[in-house]
């Protein structure tokens, strides 16, 4: 098992890839065999792809607060006249799709949580065709992301209630950036820099769900996480590095999470959640407190 990014990099040298290190570690920790482990991950991959397709076709959440915007992004993408590159727009569309499906009680794969499920799926299925990733390579992408996610989870956290959105969408975005670097032929060191760049850029991001629901601003925060992952991966692949070592950045995320007031940790007591419109929506959805 690896507990730091430094250990992950060192240990991965003994394996053909980070994905293979992750699988070997999983065999050690759970006693499951390689075939079982790969099959479990294949199921996650299938669920991710299905959730994108469903969201792009158009869904509505239970409350009606979100939904239908992945379809709008898809129309925009198909029209071909956009500012950022097609892969970024595709990643954004995918991420919105998954989180709209999540809000509509549809099937998603939590990566690392349900509220941040759009980021990794968004990035993977945006770059898959460009990179020509085979089925096995797509499964490896998830093992790679999981390896970096384990280190972030164990040294900082993956729950908005504990450390704000920086630990949910932030973790997801960092995982996606690292996996994208390796899928593009980058080195594990470059993947580590992509994690550091991403977490620095998302540091301090609060969790402020309107009416306590995983909808606003979560859906679009996933879009942001997916696009940041793409940009971080490009920076790392271009040879940009991080002066602050990745493990120190992760440690800083933990500290910021601890210092963050509880109003910004999924309690819906701050940020977007306490805007006048959010308070009105909350009352419309839940009724008054003494109901």
């Amino acid at each position: 098992m690896f507990y730091t990014i430094k250990e992950l990099i060192e240990q991965s040298k003994a394996y053909p890839s980070v994905a293979e290190l992750m699988i070997a570690t999983e065999i050690d920790n759970t006693g499951r065999n390689k075939q079982e482990i790969r099959q479990l991950m294949e199921r996650n991959l299938e669920a991710m792809e299905a959730s994108i397709n469903k969201g792009v076709a158009g869904v509505k959440s239970l409350t009606g607060l979100t939904g239908g915007e992945a379809k709008k992004m898809d129309d925009y993408l198909q029209a071909g006249n956009f500012l950022s590159g097609d892969l970024v727009v595709t990643a954004v569309r995918n991420a919105i799709a998954v989180n709209e499906v999540n809000a509509g009680m549809g099937l998603i794969c939590a990566t690392p949580t349900a509220g941040s499920a759009g980021v990794l799926a968004g990035v993977l299925f945006a770059i898959r065709d460009r990179l020509g990733l085979s089925h096995d390579q797509q499964v490896d992408f998830l093992f790679t992301a999981g390896a970096f996610g384990l280190v972030i989870g164990n040294n900082a956290g993956i729950a908005g209630a504990e450390g704000g959105c920086q630990e949910e969408v932030g973790s997801a975005s960092a995982m996606a950036a690292a996996a994208a670097v390796l899928a593009s032929g980058g080195t594990v060191e470059q993947a580590s820099y992509a994690v550091a760049i991403t977490l620095q850029n998302l540091m301090g991001l609060i969790c402020d769900p309107v009416a306590g629901l995983v909808e606003i601003p979560c859906v679009k925060r996933n879009a942001m996480g997916a696009s940041q992952a793409m940009v971080s991966a490009d920076m790392a692949l271009a040879g940009l590095t991080s002066v602050i070592p990745t493990d120190e950045v992760i440690e800083a995320v933990r500290r910021v999470g601890e210092q963050m007031p509880s109003a910004f940790k999924e309690t819906a007591e701050g940020g977007m959640a306490t805007t006048p419109t959010a308070l009105r929506l909350k009352e419309e959805i839940w009724g008054t407190d003494d109901k």
């Binding site: 098992m1 507990y3 730091t4 992750m22 570690t25 999983e26 920790n29 759970t30 482990i37 479990l40 991950m41 199921r43 996650n44 669920a47 959440s61 239970l62 499906v101 999540n102 809000a103 509509g104 009680m105 549809g106 099937l107 998603i108 794969c109 939590a110 990566t111 690392p112 949580t113 349900a114 509220g115 499920a117 990794l120 998830l142 093992f143 992301a145 999981g146 390896a147 996610g149 384990l150 989870g153 164990n154 040294n155 900082a156 993956i158 995982m175 629901l213 995983v214 909808e215 933990r254």
Partner: peptide, 27 residues
Amino acid sequence: MAEVRFNSVFDIIGPVMVGPSSSHTAG
């Protein structure tokens, strides 16, 4: 190292679940 809470890759990638909340729905 704070505390080892996650030992499996499937704690991070997964579960496949119906949304919207891992605690309020899946749990």
